[in-house]
Design a protein around this nucleic acid. Structure first.
Lengths: 147, 147
DNA sequence: TACACTGTTTATAACGATTATAATGTAAGA
DNA sequence: TCTTACATTATAATCGTTATAAACAGTGTA
């Protein structure tokens, strides 16, 4: 099924006049197959075997291209570097404050909140972002001292 | 009423053994009275008239102290620098994608989502974060071209 | 009052993620 | 083939944040 996603993404790019380069292909493929939510550097290091000459700037440039095309979402948490998430269906993230692990979960929708916010503030709402923070099972197990 | 908030904050700090310096007093005071959500640099520049010798590091250090004491929340959006928000009551933020303005709004609660997330993922939930993005009234008025 | 102790601020350097720049490469169209 | 426009590379620059070391208070004790 991820092949379909990749094909759809490539088609979407092509239809907006963006050239499909080997690097772009590889970055998209990596993002679709990766279960975690990689940073730009993760992607760079993962692909430097197949593209020994690829520059970090290429990763950033293309992530921006993908973001503008709506294929990829940029997530900024507390930690210094952004994480990137291939847009599939709507889902939310729950993040472990100990080890940083990010797990997806699905929840019907928060349209109601968007409506209320729009009504109260007069904004035109585009989208929202929700994250839940806590401690994952692995870390709950091995934690006795607080940082 | 914000004097009460300031006093409460100072008491909270003192009770945890943190010394109240003039700089800390001023940073807290500025954060309580500011309606927007300042960056560290905003605070630094706002106070450099009264504290010409103050260092940026002092601002960062103390924001961290306040954050650890639970007085201040750090918000990371897409733009490069963190914003800091004095913790009053629970509220959420709606952010303008054009001008960056941040407006508070209140919403009963999202406990339900937390419970579901906890159930599905096995995490112990601490808190969550919700932001809504859109366009504020001012920017809706003067917008015809998309970026 | 003098003295040591501890936490605070300052000044500055270092770090690291991201972006800008210029040069080179590469695909597509006339 | 020539030209044009977009992509990539390599590298430097930018900028927010953090680390470090030295100077500076406050506080408690003799």
């Amino acid at each position: 099924m991820s092949e379909v996603q990749l094909k759809d993404a490539l088609d979407a790019l092509k239809s907006t006049g963006v050239r499909i380069t080997p690097q772009r292909h590889a970055i998209l493929e990596y993002m679709i197959h990766s279960t975690n939510h990689p940073t730009a550097d993760d992607i760079y290091r993962a692909l430097e075997k197949t593209f020994p000459n690829m520059s970090v700037a290429t990763v950033y440039n293309n992530l921006r291209v993908f973001r503008k095309a709506g294929l990829v979402k940029e997530l900024t948490y507390g930690d210094s570097s952004s994480r990137f998430d291939f847009v599939t269906n709507d889902h939310y993230h729950i993040i472990c404050n100990d080890c940083g692990k990010i797990v997806d979960f699905h929840y019907p929708g928060l349209d109601e909140v968007e409506h209320l916010a729009s009504h109260v503030t007069g904004f035109e709402v585009d989208y929202h972002r929700l994250e839940i923070y806590g401690t994952c099972q692995d870390c709950v197990g091995k934690t006795a001292k607080a940082q």
